[in-house]
Amino acid sequence: MDSMSKRYAVNKFFTYIVLIVMAVIMLVPFVWMILTALKTNQEAISVNPFYILPHNGWHWSNFATVWKSYNFITLYKNTILFILFRVICACLTATMAGYAFGRLEFPGKKLMFSLVLIQMMIPSQIFIIPQYLMVSKLHLLNTTAGLVFPGLVTAFGTYLLKTSYQGLPKDLEEAAAIDGCNIGQTFLFIMLPLTRSAMISLGIFTALFAFKDLMWPMIVCSSAETTSLSAGLAKMQGQYGNDYPAMMASAVLAIVPMIVIYIIFQKQFVEGIATSGGKL
């Protein structure tokens, strides 16, 4: 073996060592969550001896128990509706505004777009108290509409779609005009389908953001029947924090659907995050 290929082999060896060590660090919390979820509470809090694996059989029934006692069906339903409406609203309003900012000329455009940019720079915590008071005045506390409320429009999505529309070839509108399309038709049938990947990015970003958000659902949906998975977990921990297998089983149930979706649509997830680069 000459020195070059030897150096290459050593290099590769160390690369794998680093990657594997990191992979183990990333995996340990997940593995421990699942193992704990399959134990009895007695096993989970046994120290001497300390059990890594479940000792008296694997208690898959823990999942069924928390499924029923914490009403996961409702939590899933709330979260799905929450995500669905947020994604629809964000995509709908942002694609329209993005098209106007990216392809049309109209008076006041610069000023309006600077408002979009300013919104993106302001930390969102400053909006929360008045948003909560509005939801409360509209009698939307503990409703899906209340959950969706701050996400009806999106400055970040508008910016993302604007960039996408700007990148499309110049002569598209002219060709459409020759075919007799008005601006609305040009947008709907010609331009909009071409920004598909940006829309998917925005959709994934919006869905993840809604799924992960904790403070807003806790504030507007304090009851267990109306809240989202994240806020539901916070509630469970507050009430039954010492039943460790139940807590871990709940955590597994809360994250598994999104993990499955992520593994199926991996490419879109990674590209969506990389291209949008939004703040999560």
Binding site: L19, M22, A23, M26, L27, V28, P29, F30, W32, M33, T36, L208, F211, K212, L214, L229, S230, A231, L233, A234, Q237, Y244, M247, M248, S250, A251, A254, I255, M258, I259, I261, Y262, I263, Q266, F269, V270, I273, L280
Partner: peptide
Amino acid sequence: FRTLFFLPMVCAPAAVAMVWKWL
């Protein structure tokens, strides 16, 4: 490896924090 390292990004921080609290 890439899939694995990205995994925490698709998990609710509430769940992640619960697991770490237990660890």
